[in-house]
Structure formats: C-alpha cells, structure tokens
C-alpha cells in the first residue's frame, strides 16, 4: 500500500493529468457507445439456431456440390470467381488514368490536379459497393453482369490510390535518361514509366483480386449474381446443411485463391 502511493507520487503531475484526461475521454466514449446499442437479450431461439448452424457445418449437404445444373456450388463458385476476375481486370485498366491523375510530383502539399484526383478516388472508395451493385441492377437487370460492373467501379477507388502511390515512389532515373536523349512524353511513358511500375501494378491487382473474391461472394445477397444469392436464401429458409456446404465452399475457395495469388505476388515484386 505504502509503496503504491510512493510510486504514484513519483509520477510527474503533468503525466498524471494526461493519463486521467485520456481515461476520462475513453470512459465517456464507451458510455456513449453502450447507451446507443440497447441490449434486450437474445431472441429465445438463439442457442438453438447456433446449434443448428454448427450441425449444418458438420453435416453439409454434399449433394449440392455438383448436380450438373450450373446452379450448384461448383457452378456458382466459378461464377463468383469469374465476377471477381473480370471486375478486377476492367478496374485495373480503368485505374491507370486515375492513378496518373492523382499522382503527385514534387513536394508541394496541395496540387490542384493531384489533390482533385485523390478526392475523387476517396469518393469512389467510400461509395458502398452494394449500393453500386443495386444501381447497376437497375441498369442491366439482376445477375452477375451487375456484379462485374460493381466490382470494376468500386475497385478503382483502392487500385487507383495504390497505383498512384507507386507512381509517386517510382525511380525517376530511366525517365530522365530518356528525356535527355530526346525522348518525347509518349516515349518516356512507354519505355521508362510503364516498365518500372508494371510489376507493382500487377501485384496490387492480384491483391485486389483476393479482396474482390470476398466481395463478389456477398454481392449475390442484393441480387448481383454469384454464391451470395443461394446463401442468403438458405439462411432465410433455415436450411442449415445447405448453409454449411456453402460456407465450406467459400472458405476453401478464398483460402485457395489467397494462397495462389500470394505466391505469385511474392515472385513478382
């Protein structure tokens, strides 16, 4: 007891105040947060449903894996992967001009072109992907095409940012060498800038593909194709062994894609 009071007295007054201040802020924040999320207990069936889900995961509906209709797990997983692949591919192409727009040369903090490009990329990144999917469903009808479009537009936000950062951090030497040898703008771009940044671009695109596989698997929940549609349907109709097999399918697919893409990325950069 005595030693405890001694140690606190050794702390400078300012430090004590600082810790007290942060403690108070954190306490107020959490008090506020808990007040906003009212807790009235779980619904009565919660334990039973969790048990059923566990049962479903350990007794999956194997018949759903492949039945030749194209509406089975294999068919829809392939469709999900196709959505992610095509969406990421289109997005990578669209991101290149955005990246050059947002990339900054020199050290000034605010630059009209680059700052405006960065703001646009932030806007795209924050726009929820499922809202985009719903908007595209209005235009092209429900189905995986809407999902492809949603992935391709939403991914620009992140890919454009990553691409522009790798342009900013690029080695300027080759470009200067070409300029001093009389190369024009287009020649510097094709023979110095692009060869320098393309391995990084590819690596980021693969990384984004991994994320796109995850998001493509949930876009179906709003009607944009892929494995999400039957999953939501199975949850709503409480067919837990169907939920189990779809969850297993997603876990295996995502793990496999992460592994393959990760090993390719290691070789690229």
């Amino acid at each position: 007891m005595k030693s405890a009071t001694l140690t606190t007295n050794h702390l400078p007054k300012q430090k004590q105040l600082k810790w007290g201040f942060w403690f108070l802020i954190i306490a107020i924040l959490f008090g506020w947060a808990f007040a906003g999320v009212p807790f009235h207990g779980f619904q009565n069936s919660a334990a039973e449903i969790s048990k059923s889900i566990m049962y479903g995961i350990f007794h999956p509906d194997w018949a759903y894996v492949y039945d030749g209709s194209g509406e089975d797990l294999v068919g829809l997983t392939l469709q999900t992967l196709a959505m992610a692949f095509l969406g990421t591919f289109i997005s990578a192409l669209l991101s290149v001009p955005f990246a050059f727009w947002a990339a900054r040369k020199g050290s000034q903090r605010i630059h009209l072109r680059s700052t405006s490009g960065k703001v646009v990329l932030t806007l795209i990144r924050t726009f929820p992907e499922i809202v985009l999917a719903i908007m595209f469903i209005k235009a092209v009808g429900p189905g995986s095409f809407a999902g492809v479009l949603a992935v391709s537009v939403h991914s620009i936000g992140m890919l454009g940012k990553l691409f522009s950062e790798s342009i900013e951090n690029m080695d300027g030497g080759p470009g200067e060498a070409l300029t001093s040898a009389g190369g024009n703008h287009a020649q510097t771009l094709t023979f110095a800038t692009l060869p320098t940044v393309i391995p990084e671009f590819l690596s980021y695109t693969l990384y984004r593909f991994e994320i796109a596989v995850r998001s493509a698997s949930i876009l179906g929940m709003v009607g944009a194709g892929g494995i999400g549609t039957p999953l939501l349907f199975a949850i709503q109709t409480r067919s837990w062994s169907r939920v189990g097999i779809i969850l297993l399918g997603i876990i295996v697919t995502v793990t496999l894609i992460d592994f393959v893409s990760g090993s390719i990325r290691k070789r690229l950069v």
Binding site: V37, F42, Q43, A46, R214, I218, G228
Partner: peptide
C-alpha cells in the same frame, strides 16, 4: 484465425441476424 478471416462481413451479418435477431446487436 485463417478460417475466421475468410468470411466476408455481410455473410457474418446474415448469420448473426439469423442467430440473435434483427437489430444492432
């Protein structure tokens, strides 16, 4: 940990809405 990380957020939301009911919980 790897298994948990493969599950997308909205999918977890759909499962938890089924388990604990609709609402912020």
């Amino acid at each position: 940990l790897n298994l948990v990380r493969t599950l997308p957020d909205l999918m977890l939301a759909a499962l938890f809405v089924a388990i604990v009911g609709i609402g912020p919980i």
